[in-house]
Design a protein around this nucleic acid. Structure first.
Length: 748
DNA sequence: TACATCCTTCTTTTT
DNA sequence: GAAGGATGTA
């Protein structure tokens, strides 16, 4: 389907460097796209350019993003630029693309085409079980840590044997345990015909390595590859990209090293920093004109990020006028902070005509959302929280999904264990253990059940429940091919007794769960609506649905509807923009987070996080902090984030209603509510707070000595005065809870 | 085996 | 300040 070059291709919409990036299509290309520099526009125009000006067939182009939302938006914009052809361009996330490839070639990898995608909580559950079997004390080696280390290994394409060589983990007895657990974990996943998130990448890489014909075939088809958010790719993704572009080398990566915020998930910032040495013939185009933010905001953000050492030296240019300065506000506590945000929003809406959808509040951790949400509710401000407790993480949804997975993949032990006693059927730990002991190696759970019914003593009640369960599952598997997906889901809820059990419960919680299940049915309907037209078997539809559900992220369902204030973590904020942005919790130990202060590289990532948040803002930016904050239900004093002191005076001012000035910021003389000695210094502050529960001289962290246990450190204080209960960690005696008036503690 | 009650721990960030 | 785990009771 050749078509003459389109003389009207809208290159005039682009500035010179954008145009350069769009029209450079042969050979490796690195597009360094600063915040707000029109990155998405460049990618979509480039795809349209390939289609229309170079007559490249759409199936020869692949664009990879990190979220489904980004992929969906990209597809829409390509279609609106290039017409229907754009529909056929392969635009997807890394993980979705890998699933598609793996389902197609599962046989070559020796796995079932219907493999289950194990999510994080599945993984964690499996690892917990393994550690227990290995008699590893979770306090010495938490499952979370093991899970993290395994994930890091997989992202680095390292198998259990090679794990001990990973730089950050030393070879010691704990490490041996982790390596062992990794091995067991893999066995368990394979027996269940399951792949975890990291496996999706790792197996795709292995597929390419071990089966060059498949790789070559794909490489023949995919002539042009584009990768968005390249700064957040991990090693596995990097290697997959290398494979796909090995021969043609038409690889275009787009990113900004200053916005790399997924180091903790294995993202390797050196991928983008060393692109030019990986592809020596690469052309580099820098997009350094920022069209988004007003001058003060951009200059403040640029100054902050310039503190990082591990970055390419560059400077964004503000296209827009200076606008208003960045506003800093110090609140008394997190409630006061939230109320300030609410009041400011109401004020801006009333006086300057902003709509609720123009505002976003960003924070470092999800737990911060509560106070803000409360305040918005009190003030009747429409708001939407993105993230936090996910819909798909609700128990009833996970249970239903587990049934669906088990229908498709009878080997799925994790799902089996989840649903075998949901609803309660009288099958507990003991029976389950019997079933497990009857399982021959790699035997699917239902075989093991049959075996157990035959050869082991099982209570009458449990035995009949098990038989009924087997029958139900058999019946559901028959229904897959004859029922539409929505009917099937209803069958699952009814036939398994799950919904009837909830209905007979008659509690608020149960009604809530039933509501969620109904909501789940709408999700199914929506899915069916979108995926019409494709002729598939029942199991293929189910499989596609489960894939989609496994790979959605919270941000995918967020829509810019203009009707509500958006509340989300800084991580979710990447790629978005809002007229007015609040960055809440600008405190030491929160931003930067205390877990990130070990290595300089981690601190730099926190700074990037702050930078990402600031650069989301178009017109107005507010940085707020609370001088004391409840953490784990207890008040703690805070210090202003060190990032305040890294902002330039001339672009930031203290908000006129700030309860306290912040040392290192301008604004002296302005604020009205300030006690004169109330300045908060970056490293310390002299302000005497109004008395807080149980908190006298024994702040957490205080060194104390005890007549019997010796020297220790205060971990927490509950209650007040002499009756206060003080938790102290003694290196010699361990953790102790002591009553203040009896403990005879001396502050050192 | 199920349910209630206590206790502990936890919170980064998520495809 | 919740949620999951451990423990005890029916």
């Amino acid at each position: 389907m050749k078509r003459p070059p389109n003389p009207l291709f809208p290159l005039q919409d682009l500035n010179p460097s954008q145009r350069d990036a769009v029209t450079t299509v042969d050979g490796p290309l690195l597009i360094l796209a600063g915040a707000g520099s029109g990155k998405t526009r460049v990618i979509t125009y480039r795809i349209a350019y390939l289609l229309q000006e170079r007559n490249i067939p759409p199936y020869a182009i692949m664009a990879v993003t990190f979220t489904n939302k980004a992929a969906g938006e990209m597809r829409e914009r390509v279609i609106s630029l290039a017409g229907r052809e754009g529909r056929m361009v392969w635009i997807s996330t890394f993980h979705s693309a890998c699933v598609r490839i793996l389902r197609q070639h599962a046989d070559r990898m020796g796995i079932s085409r219907h493999f289950t995608i194990a999510d994080d909580s599945d993984s964690l559950r499996i690892i917990k079980g393994i550690l227990k079997e290995m008699n590893v004390d979770e306090r010495v080696l938490p499952a979370r840590r093991v899970s993290y280390l395994i994930s890091r290994a997989k992202n680095a394409l390292v198998e259990p044997e090679g794990m001990a060589d990973l730089g950050e983990v030393r070879r010691d007895h704990l490490m041996e345990k982790v390596v062992l657990a990794y091995g067991h974990y893999e066995e368990r996943l394979r027996a269940s015909q399951a792949l975890d998130f990291d496996d999706l990448l790792f197996f795709t890489f292995r597929l390419f390595e071990g089966h060059p014909d498949i790789r070559d075939n794909l490489e023949d088809i995919l002539q042009f590859i584009m990768v968005d958010e390249y700064q957040d790719t991990n090693h596995a993704q990097y290697q997959i990209i290398r494979h796909l572009s090995a021969r043609r080398r038409n690889i275009c990566v787009v990113g900004d090293d200053d916005q790399s915020i997924y180091r903790w998930r294995g993202a390797d910032i050196t991928n983008i920093l060393s692109f030019e040495s990986d592809f020596p013939e690469a052309k580099v185009v820098s997009l350094m004109e920022n069209y988004r933010s007003t001058g003060h905001i951009l200059k403040a953000a640029s100054c902050l990020i310039s503190r990082n050492l591990g970055r390419k030296d560059k400077e964004l240019r503000a296209v827009r006028p200076d606008g208003l300065k960045v506003s800093a506000f110090a609140a008394v506590d997190e409630r006061d902070e939230a109320d300030f945000i609410s009041a400011t929003i109401l004020d801006l809406m009333r006086r300057e005509g902003f709509a609720a959808g123009d505002f976003a509040v960003f924070y470092r951790i999800n737990a911060q959302s509560r106070a803000i949400e409360d305040s918005m509710r009190r003030n009747n401000i429409p708001h939407a929280i993105v993230g936090g407790v996910r819909f798909y993480d609700r128990m009833e949804i996970r249970d239903t999904l587990a049934y669906l997975r088990l229908i498709l993949n009878p080997a799925d032990w994790t799902s089996f264990e989840r649903v075998i006693n949901a609803p309660a059927r009288g099958i507990g730990k003991v029976t389950l253990e019997k079933i497990r002991s009857c399982a021959a190696k790699d035997a699917p759970p239902e075989k093991a059940v049959l075996e157990a019914l035959k050869s082991v003593k099982i209570t009458k009640k449990a035995a009949s429940a098990l038989s009924a369960f087997l029958e139900t599952m058999g019946g559901l598997r028959d229904k897959v091919q004859v029922q539409a997906l929505d009917e099937l889901v209803v069958s699952v809820m009814d036939d398994t007794g799950y919904l009837p059990a909830l209905q007979s419960e008659d509690t608020e919680a149960a009604r809530n769960r039933i509501e969620n299940l109904q909501e789940f049915l709408t999700v199914v309907h929506d899915f069916l609506e979108i995926s019409t037209g494709v002729e598939e078997s029942g199991s293929d539809t189910l499989s596609a649905f489960l894939d989609q559900v496994s790979l959605v992220s919270d941000i995918d369902s967020w829509e810019d509807k203009g009707s509500a204030v958006t509340l989300m973590t800084l991580h979710m904020a990447k790629g978005l923009e809002f007229p007015v942005v609040f960055l809440a919790g600008m405190e030491e130990d929160l931003l930067p987070h205390y877990r990130s202060q070990g290595e300089p590289a981690e601190l730099e990532e926190e700074r990037r996080l702050c930078y990402v948040g600031m650069t989301r803002s178009r017109e107005r930016l507010f940085l707020t902090l609370a001088r004391r904050r409840r953490i784990f239900g207890q008040y703690d004093h805070t210090h202003p984030s060190r990032f305040f002191s890294e902002l330039p005076d001339e672009n930031v001012e203290l908000h006129s209603e700030s309860a306290f000035p912040i040392l290192g910021l301008t604004g002296r003389g302005g604020p009205s509510r300030i006690p004169s000695e109330g300045t908060i210094a970056i490293s310390e502050f002299h302000y005497e707070p109004e008395p807080v529960e149980g908190e006298e001289t024994l702040l957490p962290g205080t060194e104390v000595s005890h007549p019997m246990f010796g020297v220790g450190q205060v971990m927490g204080v509950e209650g007040e005065g002499g009756d206060a209960r003080i938790t102290v960690y003694f290196p010699k005696g361990g953790k102790k809870k002591l009553i203040a008036k009896y403990a005879n503690l001396r502050v050192i």
